[in-house]
Simulated scan of single mutants.
Amino acid sequence: MAEAMVNELMAELAALEDPRMREVNEKRGDDHGVNLTQLRAVAKRLKTQQELARELWKTGDTVARLLALLVCRPKAFDRDELDTMLREARTPKVHDWLVNYVVKKNVHAEELRVAWFADPDPVVASAGWALTSERVVKKPEGLDLPGLLDAIEAQMKDAPDRLQWAMNHTLAQIGIEHPEHRARALDIGERLEVLKDYPTPPNCTSPFAPSWINEMVRRQHA
């Protein structure tokens, strides 16, 4: 029954494919052309189905995996399962949703954060940094913030794109949330100039850490 349902869903997802959207997504490294609002509507209809989620994930198809992450039960995965899934999640959107929608809600999140943070694979390490950014904001107790700034200062400039982006996020959050480290965070951002020229639409905050920090601090005091 599960196999038949997966086949039906794969056909339904294929019918949602839009070549123009695929072209846009492929520029960001995502190999699909499905409108995510339409995908969420499919997930809403299906509701939570953990075994179906596992079967969809096994297909290896990007859209099927995104759907799996929307219908799964985040707390039902064990540590090794999540570690394997992260290493299989090579497209940015699947990686991002897996970390934010599933791992962050799982009891093994902190254990995985520590393991991934030091991983030699930069894509895996970027997940460790993404979870670290979350802790910087929500549960900084026990984190070595000066040590994180040391690592960012030494490694961010030459890090691969995804890891660089995650490190930059941590840098910005330290500067925003921890006034005692703000001057150093701003100084590191100014000197490294990572994402300084990132194209940012009007009325959006630049991901360049000094601009991001200053804008968020301004809003806090507005």
Score class of each variant (00 low, 15 high):
Leu192Phe: 08
Leu149Trp: 00
Ala183Trp: 13
Asn100Val: 04
Val34Asp: 10
Ile188Thr: 02
Asn214Ser: 15
Pro19Phe: 01
Thr62Phe: 00
Val123His: 05
Asp150Pro: 13
Leu70Trp: 14
Leu82Gln: 03
Glu215Ile: 12
Ala130Ser: 13
Leu195Asp: 14
Ala41Ile: 08
Arg182Gly: 15
Met1Thr: 02
Gly29Leu: 02
Leu67Pro: 02
Thr84Ser: 09
Ala127Met: 04
His221Gly: 13
Ala64Leu: 09
Val124His: 08
Leu192Met: 11
Trp212Asp: 14
Ala15Gly: 09
Glu88Asp: 05
Lys104Trp: 08
Leu9Met: 08
Leu82Trp: 04
Ala4Pro: 00
Ile152His: 11
Glu81Tyr: 00
Leu163Phe: 14
Ala2Phe: 07
Arg28Ala: 13
Ser211Ala: 15
Ala209Cys: 05
Ala14Asn: 07
Ala15His: 04
Asn35Lys: 04
Tyr101Arg: 08
Leu145Pro: 11
Thr62Gly: 05
Arg54Gly: 15
Lys139Glu: 14
Asn100Met: 10
Glu141Thr: 02
Leu149Gln: 03
Gln155Cys: 02
Val114Met: 06
Ala41Cys: 05
Leu112Ala: 04
Val102Trp: 03
Ala76Val: 01
Asp158Gly: 09
Val99Gly: 02
Arg22Glu: 09
Glu177Thr: 01
Gln173Thr: 01
Arg113Thr: 08
Asp30Tyr: 03
His221Tyr: 14
Ala14Gln: 13
Ser211Leu: 14
Trp129Ile: 08
Val123Pro: 00
Glu3Tyr: 06
Arg45Tyr: 02
Ser206Pro: 06
Leu52Asn: 05
Ile176Trp: 01
